[in-house]
Design a binder for these strands. Structure first.
Length: 562
RNA sequence: GCGCCCGUAGCUCAAUUGGAUAGAGCAGUGGCCUUCUAAGCCGCAGGUUACAGGUUCGAGCCCUGUCGGGCGUACCA
């Protein structure tokens, strides 16, 4: 009532301190100011108009005008019962689902994937998963680099291989070597360089034999990416790949549209869009170049074409770009031009979701000792190797196959979790020791918490399904704290989706796992007397389900034992 | 030069966008395994949130300035 009168949001959040109850409403003070009334008085009026008897045990006014709410155990227990009986864990499907495009990963198919692709791939996938789970229609778009001059060179090198009687397909298996050798030849052999350049012209001209070899190369390269995605537990499929070349035919139309809209200016022979809000050196106008002097197009043009496609054909309500922060200006320009040109209306939101760079322990850019880029495949090998060492040390008696499975889940999970648990925008220091640490906000800690729950069920030979009707008791503070956190999944996911901030989910899961550990220490489960035993088993099962679901949305596996 | 981002405990990072006494992990220090996985749990100690002003009931968060770092700034992506 008050909120609607003053247009002030209620701002209900978990309390900053347990002594204030479970949730606090922070909006009263601001509302009172706007309405020029006393905040505590206003809080009193709100309370009088509010009926929280269904969910609250206690509601009180505190401090300058906070409203503190203590949930009733009954309300919490009811919620938990619903969650336990629901594979969505009582998280509602969006009432107004959106068509959301998430543009992420986007490797260059001319080369092997390297660590530079890791953050976009992991963060974008987590965001896509969460949005999808909340009921939105998600279009994962892998805007791969599958076009450009380097492909002329690669095709020329394929030809050279075949001429030498070698099987080009086998050679392609190591994309990095293939690229390096092609580049070397391009730089040293004038004949080769000429045929490479001719190939570019042929490709653009639609030469069928050239296109066939180009597709053959792409097929190999895409298989390599799929291998990485599969190993990483990333949901991207080949059908999500819609590379730059997919927009080739649209590029002239994009430029024509810009011209028709009166936005196009020729400058130094290039076709540009100048918008007054963008300036460069010495306040000189800064163009968005959409066509080079030689007639070629740039990634701004492709991005504009992609926006057009996503709005027209995918009916996007929201388009999310997960790229490094260095591209902020590019996207600002592209978004502004897309709106001016009418490619996208006000109903569609365009969001650049930036992230910082990966640094090594010394705070330098993450590179190999020789200064080259680190191959993603090799990074993942090392992750699993290091995880395997830890598993072997902690749990030498497990069967080898189990150890391997744990090493995979823990190693890959550690790399992903470390990335996802940081605030995206800051650069982050990559540290094997920290991400594989068994304490703190890490994947192994989460996975361990899960394995401990599962162990209880194994030991008790219990089936969670049999517990459905059993009442949940929250008498112990550790039980209640755990229940409260379990009930917080939905609001957490909503925030992650709204802000594109996976680290809110990891922080939530860490709090949940910590609460569980506490519960685990203080509340015996299997040895508890009958009604309590079932109640605690239900809390255990719910904890496991939430951890599993949360990690699954982050693309991280759980294991039954570790 | 201009623009964007960042600066929080010795170290690595949080802080749900303006809420109450700034939180974790590591490192330091003291406890807890005859009972469900100790890869765990519970204490203690550690802070002028780079600095200086400002806005207001309230600022790590907003505004102005300064210092320090990163990135970007016309035909790469």
């Amino acid at each position: 009532m008050t909120a609607s009168q003053t247009h002030s949001p209620a701002i209900v959040l978990p309390t900053s301190d347990a002594k204030f109850g479970d949730y606090q409403a922070n909006g009263i003070m601001a509302a009172a100011k706007r309405a020029k009334t006393n905040p505590r008085e206003l809080a009193g009026n709100v309370l009088a108009a509010l009926d929280l008897t269904d969910l609250a045990e206690k509601v009180e006014i505190a401090g300058p005008g906070f409203i503190n709410v203590t949930l009733s155990d009954r309300f919490l227990a009811d919620h938990l019962s619903r969650a336990a009986d629901d594979d969505r864990l009582d998280v509602a499907v969006a009432a107004d689902p959106q068509n959301v495009v998430v543009d992420y990963s986007g490797p260059n198919l001319a080369k092997e994937m390297h660590v530079g692709h890791l953050r976009s791939t992991i963060i974008g996938d987590a965001i896509a998963n969460v949005l999808e789970f909340l009921g939105n229609r998600v279009f994962r778009q892998n805007h791969v680099g599958d076009w450009g001059t380097q492909f002329g060179m690669l095709i020329a090198y394929m030809d050279r291989q075949v001429d030498c009687g070698q099987d080009a397909t086998a050679e392609l298996a190591d994309l990095e070597v293939f690229y390096r050798q092609a580049k070397q030849l391009f730089d040293s052999d004038a004949d080769f360089a000429r045929s490479a350049r001719e190939n570019v012209v042929k490709l653009q001209g639609g030469d069928e034999s050239c296109l066939r070899r180009w597709r053959q190369f792409l097929d190999q390269s895409m298989s390599h990416c799929e291998g990485i995605y599969h190993r990483l537990g990333v949901s991207l499929q080949r059908s999500d790949m819609r590379g730059e070349s997919a927009y080739n035919d649209d590029l002239p139309a994009v430029v024509a549209d810009l011209k028709a809209a009166g936005l196009l200016t020729e400058s130094d022979g290039a076709q540009c869009v100048f918008l007054p809000e963008f300036t460069g050196h010495n306040d000189s106008p800064l163009p968005l170049i959409v066509q080079k002097t030689d007639g070629g197009y740039l990634y701004a043009t492709t991005d504009l074409a992609a926006i057009r496609y996503r709005v027209r054909h995918l009916k996007a309500d929201r388009i999310i770009y997960t790229t490094d922060a260095g591209q902020a200006l590019h996207f600002k320009q592209v978004f502004a031009v897309a709106r001016k040109a009418g490619f996208v209306g006000n109903a569609t939101s365009l969001e650049h979701v930036p992230f910082g760079v990966m640094l090594d322990a010394e705070g330098r850019r993450f590179r190999t000792r020789q200064g080259g880029t680190v191959k993603l495949m090799e990074l993942l090998d090392e992750a699993e190797r290091r995880a395997a060492d830890v598993v072997a040390e902690k749990n030498p008696d497990l069967p080898d196959q189990t150890k391997r499975r744990i090493a995979h889940a823990v190693g890959i999970g550690a790399v992903k979790y470390a990335d996802l648990s940081m605030d995206r925008i800051s650069d982050y220091k990559f540290s094997w020791d920290k991400m594989l640490a068994l304490q703190g906000n890490t994947a192994p800690y989460m996975q361990y918490a899960y394995a401990r729950v599962r162990s209880i069920f194994r030991k008790g030979a219990e089936d969670a399904g049999q517990l459905l009707g059993e009442p949940i008791s929250l008498a112990d503070p550790a039980e209640r704290e755990l229940a409260k956190l379990i009930a917080r999944l939905e609001e957490t996911l909503a925030t992650v989706a709204a802000e594109c901030r996976p680290n809110f989910l990891t922080a939530y899961l860490f709090a949940l796992a910590t609460a569980f550990s506490n519960f685990y220490e203080t509340c015996p489960v299997l040895n508890a007397p009958p009604p309590l035993r079932a109640s605690r088993l239900r809390l255990c099962d719910l904890t496991a389900c939430v951890i599993k679901k949360g990690l699954e949305l982050l693309g991280i596996e759980v294991v039954e034992k570790m």
